[in-house]
């Protein structure tokens, strides 16, 4: 397992710009609405708990108020919001999620003496996901023809990271400028930053 991630930009928060020209009304409205995660409506409590456990492995968050991810996936499934693509090898999106969640749990049980995914410790959960990504499956029948890697990468990982990195906290930890309308940027060259950007970051490999 790798080192816990430490942000190169401690102290930087895109939300400090909330009242500045970097934020416009529509962006504030979107972020405000997202502050209260939607209620669970599509998955059942067990499936939802499993999804939350998956989100926590994919994006380990050590902040006091973690960015909610699972509720937005549930809401998208409830609303039938698609991605525009359904690979022919994949079932429709809702079925894919239900089948995928069930299969991941089945994989856990097959690999760890009948213990479900949620009951595993984090390193074991991660190891399991890595073997699923490799296509190294112990409960192939649970996938019902759905390619595990396709589900894992194209749906599960992709949706989780896209939700996470649209959250201000995630933008801040990578030093991204965040919302930028109507104010954009002036200084475009290396070594130059606008006062409303993150200060220069520090990385261990170049301390």
């Amino acid at each position: 397992m790798s080192q816990p991630f430490r942000t190169p930009y401690p102290g930087y928060d895109v939300l400090d710009k909330w009242d500045s020209p970097s934020f416009d009304d529509q962006t504030r409205e979107v972020l405000r609405a997202r502050r209260d995660p939607p209620p669970r409506r599509f998955l059942d409590p067990n499936q939802f708990a499993l999804l939350e456990a998956l989100c926590a492995v994919v994006i380990p968050q050590r902040r006091p108020e973690p960015v909610p991810i699972a509720p937005f996936i549930d809401a998208a499934l409830h609303a039938g919001r698609g991605t525009g693509t359904r690979f022919a090898t994949m079932p429709p999106e809702r079925d894919a999620w239900l089948r995928g969640l069930e299969a991941i749990d089945a994989e856990a049980r097959a690999a760890f003496d009948g213990r479900g995914f949620c009951e595993l410790v984090r390193p074991k959960q991660a190891r399991l996901l890595r073997s699923i990504d490799r296509g190294d499956c112990r409960a192939p029948e649970a996938w019902q023809e759905m390619p595990p890697q396709k589900f894992f990468r194209a749906l599960l990982l992709k949706q989780i990271v896209q939700i996470y990195y649209s959250a201000p906290a995630a933008m801040s930890e990578i030093g991204y400028g965040g919302p930028a309308s109507p104010r954009g940027y002036v200084r475009l060259k290396v070594g130059q930053i606008d006062p409303w950007e993150a200060p220069f970051g520090t990385w261990e490999d170049q301390a």
Binding site: P21, P182, R183, G184, Y185, V186, D194, P195, W196
Partner: peptide
């Protein structure tokens, strides 16, 4: 420029 004088920190430079 975008947002005009309200965004003076950008627009007076750009």
């Amino acid at each position: 420029n975008s947002a005009g004088w309200r965004n003076w920190r950008q627009t007076t430079l750009a």
